[in-house]
Amino acid sequence: MSAFWRVVWIVAKKDLAIEARSRELLNTTVFFALSCVIVFSVSFVGEGGDGRALGDAAAGILWIAIAFSGTLALGRTFERERYGDTLRALLLAPGARPAVYVGKLVGVVGLLLATEIIIVPLVALLFQARLFDHTLLLAALLGFGTVGFACVGTLFAAMLGRARSRDVLLPILLYPVTIPVMIAGVRGTAALIQPTPQLDMARLWIMLLLSFDVVFLTLSLWTFESVMTE
């Protein structure tokens, strides 16, 4: 087992080290998420002049920004591997294939969490959404949601690595499958920012996200080996 985690650590460290030096993904992803937020501010801010988003829209804005910028980051992570043809090298390296997958997943989750650390306060600030009243529950929603989104996303982005028109296909394949994450994330966050927060509701959504994570992580680990074999 320790050999497995060593491969995971090496692959994740490689991705995070590249990212720490260039900051290419973090910079572009955060800026893209900000652009999304600006676009939503046009449609979902009421006439009242208090700058609040209509109804539960702040929760939707947050999660759509995360999903869109996440797709961008996923595509780019594997574009980088494809560019140097290093994905093949990674797969050929001794060590379990699923460990390579988990390593990539850790890298993607780390990047998305870093983006969220910037985006969440920004949405809270720009739309006067009370996102930080229950920080722990929000962190759980975001954490489990990100893992769910990223575990499907990493597998799909990896397997699309050698497909034609992969840039278009990634969101097309990814969004219908990860819609439960979006539903649970948006509804859970909306439950937290109500004038009277519905904590039980948020906990229910967190449990749903957790079970989604377990099922899809298992499926990804099981399919990664066979979909990546040429």
């Binding site: 799909f156 699309l160 497909a163 034609r164 819609i179 099922v215 066979s226 979909v227």
Partner: peptide, 19 residues
Amino acid sequence: GGPGSETLAAGLAVFGMAT
């Protein structure tokens, strides 16, 4: 998807069923 998309599609179908 071009050549090799059969396996990818099989993975997608499994995920679609599970979701």
